[in-house]
């Protein structure tokens, strides 16, 4: 039952230090650090993090394009200026949170801002902590 699926998998990229046959120690040995783990780097709250797919062009001014992979963290407290996922009319939508003017704004001039309701917790589903663009092909 408690099986973890791809969101928890890690790919460890090995970091080799070469041992020379002659017995001369690698000068890098003292400087070894852990391998970089992209999953750890992007995700701070694994059990509260979800991946979603962007659809549409309303966020292009913020660098989010159709087909991008978005990392949504539900554990983060949304603050002014965050890119968020909001439930608007029952649909999940990506917007920028403008708390100063109490509205949600799009990253495309042809979309007008949407006023926030009193209790904005009701519609904010999570904070987008990162977006990933594919420069070759959609996996």
């Amino acid at each position: 039952m408690t099986k973890f699926y791809p969101i928890y998998t890690r790919l460890q990229l090995p970091f080799f230090s070469y041992r020379l046959r002659a017995g001369f120690p690698s000068p890098a040995d003292d400087y070894l650090e852990n391998a970089l783990d992209l999953h750890k780097h992007l995700i701070t709250h694994p059990s509260a993090t979800y991946y979603v797919r962007a659809q549409g062009d309303s966020m292009i001014n913020f660098g989010i394009f159709d087909g991008d992979l978005l990392v949504v963290d539900r554990a983060l407290q949304p603050v002014h200026g965050d890119v968020v996922v909001a439930a608007l009319n029952g649909e999940l939508a990506c917007k920028v949170l403008d708390l100063k003017h109490r509205q949600l704004i799009s990253g495309n001039d042809s979309f007008s801002p949407i006023p926030l309701p009193e209790d904005c917790d009701l519609i904010i589903e999570g904070v987008i902590s990162a977006s990933i663009r594919y420069h070759r092909c959609l996996p």
């Binding site: 699926y5 791809p6 991946y51 979603v52 797919r53 962007a54 659809q55 309303s58 996922v85 990506c94």
Partner: peptide, 14 residues
């Protein structure tokens, strides 16, 4: 399978 398959992720309107 929203959380376990890359091709079935939830879609978010942008």
């Amino acid at each position: 399978a929203y959380t376990t398959r890359w091709d079935e992720l939830p879609r978010v309107r942008c």
